[in-house]
């Protein structure tokens, strides 16, 4: 492996040597990906609890769920869906660019991904959480919305806030990971022969998108 020779003029990724307990860099890459996919299964099942609560209570209280769904603005949800989908695309593009060695483009793509994440959080908090919370559309015992038509509406808000806040926490974690990858791309850590962390961060970000792809219709559209 000629690229592994340690010459000081080369970037980190050109000098990268895989961990000694793997037989090759390809095997290490494969192992990391398998490990990360397993981690993603745990994430899906973590949200599985929220989906289960949604499924159970939606079936038990369809009218309250319909009312709750009508109290959400599909335009905001749809906008956030588009924002996340675009960020997923730029994330995938940044992997492509790193693979090809187009580092400036890679950094721009990562930066846009980061911006999209921030936009998602901003829309979520400024246009959804704060206005809703302040007029009393709150979970469980905190509920104080005067115009509820169904007694189980507080439970709908519980599921809404649990699901979306845990998802938003994942968006924030993803943004931290992306910021790290952006910094390290800038410093020359990743390149065509070594981009495992870029790929893995991308997987995480896509999962966040994936969860939202299901949360959006369940919360905003199904009635």
């Amino acid at each position: 492996m000629s690229t592994l020779s340690s010459s000081s003029g080369k970037s980190f990724w050109q000098r990268y040597v895989h961990a000694s307990h793997f037989r090759s860099a390809a095997e290490e890459f494969d192992a990391v990906k398998l490990g990360f996919w397993l981690f993603l299964t745990t994430e899906v099942l973590l949200f599985g609890g929220i989906f289960c609560a949604y499924f159970i209570f939606r079936t038990l209280y369809p009218d309250a769920w319909r009312e709750g769904s009508h109290l959400l603005d599909w335009r905001l949800g749809g906008l956030n869906t588009a924002v996340l989908l675009i960020s997923s695309y730029t994330m995938a593009m940044s992997i492509y660019c790193v693979q090809k060695g187009y580092f400036t483009r890679a950094k721009w793509n990562l930066f846009i991904t980061l911006l999209c994440g921030a936009a998602f959080i901003f829309i979520k908090i400024a246009y959804e959480y704060i206005p809703k919370w302040s007029v009393g559309k709150r979970p469980g015992a905190l509920f104080d919305y005067p115009f509820a038509e169904h007694a189980q509406l507080p439970l709908w808000w519980s599921v809404y806030y649990c699901g979306t806040s845990i998802h938003a926490a994942h968006v924030l974690i993803g943004m931290v990971l992306i910021a790290r990858v952006l910094y390290r791309t800038h410093k020359g850590y990743y390149g065509p022969t070594h981009y495992t962390m870029v790929e893995v961060t991308g997987l995480y970000w896509h999962l966040v998108d994936l969860i939202w792809i299901f949360l959006f219709p369940l919360l905003y559209l199904i009635h």
Binding site: L60, Y61, Y145, P146, F147, A148, A151, L153, P154
Partner: peptide, 20 residues
């Protein structure tokens, strides 16, 4: 398996409406 959201015996939704 179906409950009504209550606090101190008053459904929470009713309580919120009465407060309003």
């Amino acid at each position: 398996g179906q409950g009504v959201a209550t606090a101190n015996g008053v459904p929470i939704a009713d309580a919120a409406r009465d407060r309003f």
